[in-house]
Design a protein around this nucleic acid. Structure first.
Lengths: 137, 137
DNA sequence: GGCCAAAATTAGACTTAGTCCAATATTACG
DNA sequence: CGTAATATTGGACTAAGTCTAATTTTGGCC
């Protein structure tokens, strides 16, 4: 699936997001790479040719994307949030040495034995994080 | 199990931690309450009577406790780390509205279908986080 | 107890991720 | 094309956490 400007514009529109220049650039950075990126990485990528987008806009836009469910946030590192262009159900392997994040498709995974949720609470998502490190420390 | 000064000293010693006044206070704050607390909450608790412990010491101590596996860290909120005095295998329910964290005993839970880990990697822990919110938004 | 080296604590400067704000620029649309 | 609504901006600000060099406390030893 090639992410052309037009497919990105369509993607933004279909999520109720006004496709401005900066938003398209940020979406491109995330979707074309398909990687988990932090806000500062995205800021650097988007401005790598010529400076075009401010820090404030990157944060505004990522929060907008989150709200509109175009991306997910992955909270595994106490220092920064990662933004994940994959919104299919999936979990993560986190390499605590390198910071590398890898997806685990959720369709093969079953969790049994979870307790019922408290009355009047709804699940907003179930995340599994497998923290790994290089063998032999 | 009452957490007297002596049991705390013993607990620290058995984890290879020199039991200083501040470390005992911090351990007491965590273990007597048995709650998930952030560093700034612990700082406030420890200094609530008379100011006795600096911010640097709270952070130093919590990192030491982590390293010696006396506590665990829980990374669910992008803004702060929670420290968890329960080191038994367990998972968490996180109320995204209130920030409240609740334990789920891991002994009843089974996860099936996890992929094999990459060669020469070892699992360092598997965390399940069930994010919940109040029904009817 | 008293002495000293090693370990712990400290205040406060610093770093970094992220937010806020009021001014400016862009866009959508009649 | 004009204008109101929306988006972007630089830069000041906040909050969590780290660092540092100086001071204090501790533990071991006589």
């Amino acid at each position: 699936m090639p992410y052309t400007r037009d497919t990105l514009v369509e993607m933004l529109r279909s999520h109720g997001i006004n496709p401005t220049h900066q938003r398209i650039e940020i979406a491109y950075a995330l979707f074309a790479r398909g990687e988990h990126l932090s806000a500062d990485q995205i800021l650097a990528i988007v401005n790598s040719r010529h400076s075009e987008t401010s820090k404030a806009t990157v944060y505004n836009t990522l929060n907008l994307f989150l709200e509109k469910k175009l991306v997910r946030e992955v909270i595994v590192d106490p220092h920064k949030v990662f933004y994940d262009p994959n919104t299919d159900a999936h979990h993560h392997i986190y390499n605590v040495d390198t910071g590398e994040l890898t997806d685990i498709d959720a369709s093969r995974i079953e969790i049994s034995g979870l307790p019922p949720l408290p009355e009047n609470m709804v699940a907003d998502g179930v995340d599994i994080i497998v923290r790994v490190r290089a063998r032999a420390s």
